[in-house]
Design a protein around this nucleic acid. Sequence first.
DNA 1: GATGATCTCCCCAGAACTGGGGATAACGCA
DNA 2: TGCGTTATCCCCAGTTCTGGGGAGATCATC
Lengths: 225, 225
Amino acid sequence: MSDLMAEITKAMGFRHYALVHHVDLKPAVRSVHIVDYPQDWVERFQARRLYASDPIHRASHRTNVGFAWSAVQSIISLTAADRSILAEAYEAGLGDGFTVPAHIPGELNGSCSFAMAAGEMLDHRQLPFVQLVGSFAFEAARKISRIHAPQSECPSLTERQAECVALVARGKTDWEISQILGIGQETVIQHVKDARDRYGVTKRTLLAIRALFDGQISFADVFGR
Amino acid sequence: MSDLMAEITKAMGFRHYALVHHVDLKPAVRSVHIVDYPQDWVERFQARRLYASDPIHRASHRTNVGFAWSAVQSIISLTAADRSILAEAYEAGLGDGFTVPAHIPGELNGSCSFAMAAGEMLDHRQLPFVQLVGSFAFEAARKISRIHAPQSECPSLTERQAECVALVARGKTDWEISQILGIGQETVIQHVKDARDRYGVTKRTLLAIRALFDGQISFADVFGR
DNA sequence: GATGATCTCCCCAGAACTGGGGATAACGCA
DNA sequence: TGCGTTATCCCCAGTTCTGGGGAGATCATC
């Protein structure tokens, strides 16, 4: 993967790339982290835990399409600290660059960035192509890094159960759910009990999250309306 | 905007388009909703509130790049209900299509879809271009409707709080969390309490889901390892 | 007609959570 | 030095959840 990325990066006229989830490196977590940035910068980046506050990362959380680093202030306002981070990156050898955000609900935020050497100019005519490459590169990395392990049969819930779980996910108590659905509290308790059983979990919190994860309910069910 | 979309749609060889946030239509909410689908289907879609459960929408919540509708089962597993929804859409005049997801942390999920008439075939060589157009179209629509996030307060948690919330999301009890983190149960109770306060919620279930939604924790934290 | 699935309702005991009220210590920042 | 933040711990009363045990009604299917 990194060989391929290096090749593509070069072919597009860039010098460095970073294909990352925006988290501190935790070996235990299956996150994407394929980077070819100046070593010096990578170390400082991690030491200072910039993955959360780096202005490029922050900007990538506010948009859906890629952007040139030189245009970052059109997306977020830069603080003095941000400017010094950018200056430091430049010192370390990173010139202008282009970052493609990669967000999926319920997953870590990520991005795919390509950078020139310090002093070189971006070829703006090429950016749409870079956008495309960035998106697909991230998706590919994400698929590879995900073991997609159990692919266990997602237990299906009955309609009533799903309705109850959706309300559980909204933080409703069993009594509140009974009022919303117009049935008895005992009935709700039973539906939630049955739903927990189907998922083989013992806590309603995990029930809600599992149901969310495999699409029995969606974030729209939780926050919609 | 819709004129332009219609033109682009035609130029790319498609018949219909839909540039939408995945929510029920509410005039009060400033969300993107630019659609040119068969009227019949739009009505049924809204009547049955499919925005949340439509398999194409669900699939678009699981990926970051576009996908052909005919390949949707490689992303999510289809239930019988899903299949009947797809069949119904086909009946209504929607053939194969291509959907580009558009997700931004803290905002409503959205997508940009292009569809053929029933019976026509997708030109797969063109899909990368469609991907590009879809992304930019959504971003443009989003900027115009300038919903720039309903100033979605994304409260930040302290490290300890986030650790506790991640474990809450795994269905652990406060006592279990205390054992895992090697601290007192009372301390865990306090951290969870503080985290609930920051999010302004009163139930740990909603706390976990909110934290999941805006990226404080991820599904990897919940299911990983 | 039996069987299974679903939805509805009921009771109970013990565990877990929630919302108040405290406290101490360490750290950085002004 | 004082103030805010964070992390740690403690107590308590009341609510909510969890895991057992039931039961009757409907509906489709075999």
